[in-house]
Amino acid sequence: MQILARYINTATIFDVSGDIDLANSPEVRKALLHEVRENRPPRVVMNLSKVRYIDSSGVASLVEGLKASRDLGLRFILFGLSPSAREVLQLSRLLRIFEVYDNEDQALAS
């Protein structure tokens, strides 16, 4: 799993690739919370188009990122969900609480 940050205007975009599971979800959580709490960009955007699988610990990391963002009045956005990632958010009844877009253009135009 790789997570890299890039910065476009007022957004921080995290490009994540590989599976997010128990072995690496702490890394995702750490990167997200550091960015949200230290840099406070108005928009934190997760590019999940190269993530094929997310487990419950990965979902928990996203929820933590969302809550930390909301606490500071920032937006937390996801795009490029794979069928598996979409299913896991649906089954957890969490899909509706995230801002989700199909691609980066839509996410940045929102």
């Binding site: 487990d55 979902v59 928990a60 990391s61 929820v63 933590e64 809550k67 896991v88 089954l91 009844r93």
Partner: peptide, 14 residues
């Protein structure tokens, strides 16, 4: 229960 939005405890439900 899934009503509350918080991290953790989702594995069994899934």
């Amino acid at each position: 229960p899934l009503d509350e939005i918080r991290p953790g405890g989702l594995g069994l439900h899934l």
